[in-house]
């Protein structure tokens, strides 16, 4: 259901067109649910299949999609950042505590085994596959478009609003915190100094963030109610992302593929032995 913009008056069409998020690449133009399914299947697939080949193949596909979307470099950077903290602990724990017969080297009472390195490497490949899949979804999908698409598919408008507001609240709060920090720095608050100076600045930053967020929530809920948000019954959407037959087929195909992978793994046909 691509919006009926063509049927509207010019001014209304311009207004509705503002709701449409930018779609700079063919991958961005995919239906948000399709992208969500790709992210889910890739993440679960990497987890279920395990080993090296499956997750690496998934990473390859996701990176190819990222290249099409024009976000390859950013995706790799963000995914690496997400994976890094877990990777460090996985490496430390797995390499030195996993039992194995091939000892590579010893540090104090700990033996680093080949089996531990293998386990850590497989875990990291899985984690990176999951991280890239989810990051690609986040980088190429407008949260509001995704929620509108779910609402079109039957999600309750109230739940859809809560979901959208939650997703949008984070960047809005970050932006608000930036303005508040600027205002306090203008009054001499030193946020560039040492730890003590920064600690002193905590209260002047956090109080306005919280209070202005609460005020905004109250104003927003009032604004919704006066525009009949609580009215029961089905409502029309001004715009929602389009969906295509072949995308539906892709989604079902991916779901089937995941099912096959799960069955194969349970049956011991696919996947690693870790």
């Amino acid at each position: 259901m691509e919006a009926p913009i063509g049927l509207l008056e010019t001014d209304d069409a311009t207004l509705v067109a503002r709701l449409v998020p930018p779609t700079p690449s063919p991958y961005h133009r995919l239906n948000p649910t399709t992208k969500a399914v790709i992210a889910t299947v890739a993440s679960l697939g990497a987890f279920v299949i395990g080993g090296y080949v499956g997750p690496l193949a998934i990473i390859g596909v996701v990176l190819a999609c990222a290249a099409v979307a024009g976000v390859l470099r950013r995706l790799v950077r963000v995914s690496a950042l997400f994976t890094l903290p877990i990777a460090i602990s996985v490496i430390l724990v797995s390499v030195f505590t996993r039992a194995g017969t091939t000892v590579l080297f010893t540090i104090g009472p700990f033996d680093a085994t080949l089996e531990g390195v293998d386990f850590a490497a497989q875990t990291l490949v899985r984690l990176f596959a999951i991280s890239t899949a989810i990051s690609l979804f986040g980088m190429t999908t407008d949260p509001r478009a995704f929620v509108l698409d779910l609402e079109r598919r039957g999600l309750s408008p109230r739940f859809a609003f809560v979901a959208a507001a939650t997703v949008e609240a984070v960047p809005a709060m970050v932006a608000r915190a930036g303005t508040i920090q600027a205002a306090q720095r203008s009054r001499g608050l030193d946020t560039e100094g040492g730890l003590l100076a920064r600690a002193r600045g905590f209260l002047p930053l956090i109080v306005p963030v919280v209070l202005s967020s609460l005020t905004e929530v109250e104003e927003r809920s009032l604004a919704l109610e006066v525009r009949a948000f609580g009215r029961p019954g089905k409502r029309d959407l001004l715009w929602c992302p389009g969906d295509r037959g072949w995308e539906r087929a892709v989604r079902w195909g991916l779901a089937l593929l995941l099912l096959v992978a799960i069955v194969g793994r349970v049956a011991g046909i696919v996947g690693a032995t870790v």
Partner: peptide, 22 residues
């Protein structure tokens, strides 16, 4: 000059008072 030092020379009143009151 750091912002904290410039604050002694330039006072900036932001548009929205609720962005600073704590």
């Amino acid at each position: 000059l750091r912002v904290a030092a410039l604050a002694a020379r330039v006072g900036l009143v932001f548009q929205d008072p609720d962005r600073q009151i704590f």
